[in-house]
């Protein structure tokens, strides 16, 4: 049976993890390669690296990091942040990334999704969508959630699926950072709207939140950052409990 995936997300700036990580027995918590290896051992099913470098130098460092992760880590990983062209993707995939994610650049120029899926295959094209519920309507936001658009979450999800996206990473801005749980209603509706896998993001605080997002939100995968980085939830415990709750996971 295909299992539900648990995905730690690492924010990377100039080749280093930021937001801090609080692992015991880690020589260098800022080293993304070291962290990635730890997560692979701990049972993470996949990893996401989000590049938040704003400089060209930072981008170059990111490519070096991708090479090192690919060299040393034996589970799949996605790279996102600042990707806006076929060339950007080409260099990341050639450096060993398994998937890439695009966000604002796809909203600005939706043909990008077609170009990427036809050149590299849908399987490696993740479209990340940040959305916020305003007056009952889920509106897509850009640039890390800072710029609102008139685009409806569900319409946009359907469109990117048609254009060849292989997966959607949906972050609810209403839930992100709250630790009050994922946006399960919107997630369940997304799963009805499209027929590609959905990664739930934003709001993880407890193990129960993960159970809910798989059972109520029908998510195919759940992504979180701080609860894993600060050891608030151990992936092993999380998976044991999910299994007991009848959620199929890889242990």
């Amino acid at each position: 049976m295909l299992t539900k995936r648990i995905i730690p997300c690492l924010d990377i700036k100039n080749g280093r993890t930021v937001k801090g990580v609080n692992f015991v027995n880690l020589r260098d918590a800022g080293d993304p390669v070291e962290l990635a290896k730890q997560y692979a051992v701990k049972g993470a099913d996949e990893l996401v690296f989000l590049d938040i470098s704003a400089t060209l130098e930072g981008r170059k460092t990111m490519i070096e990091m991708v090479l090192k992760v690919a060299e040393q880590v034996n589970i799949p990983f996605t790279v996102g942040g600042g990707i806006s062209s076929v060339e950007d993707v080409d260099v990341l995939l050639k450096s060993g990334a398994d998937k890439i994610s695009v966000n604002s650049s796809a909203v600005k120029r939706p043909e990008l999704v077609n170009e990427l899926s036809s050149k590299f295959g849908s399987q490696c094209v993740v479209v990340a969508i940040d959305a916020k519920q305003v007056n009952g309507q889920w509106k897509v936001h850009l640039a890390g959630g800072s710029i609102p658009t008139e685009l409806d979450l569900f319409d946009w999800a359907k469109e990117v699926e048609t254009r060849g996206a292989g997966e959607i990473l949906f972050t609810s801005m209403n839930n992100d950072g709250t630790k009050n749980g994922f946006a399960n209603q919107a997630l369940a509706k997304l799963s009805e709207t499209v027929n590609i896998p959905i990664i739930a993001s934003g709001g993880a605080g407890t193990i129960q939140h993960f159970t809910d997002t798989f059972k109520v939100g029908n998510a195919d995968a759940a992504l979180a950052a701080s609860v894993f980085h600060f050891g608030e939830i151990e992936i092993k415990d999380l998976k044991e409990e999910l299994k007991q709750e009848g959620v199929s996971v890889r242990i």
Partner: peptide, 8 residues
Amino acid sequence: KVPQMGWN
């Protein structure tokens, strides 16, 4: 869901 994506 297509593609099948993940661990089986």
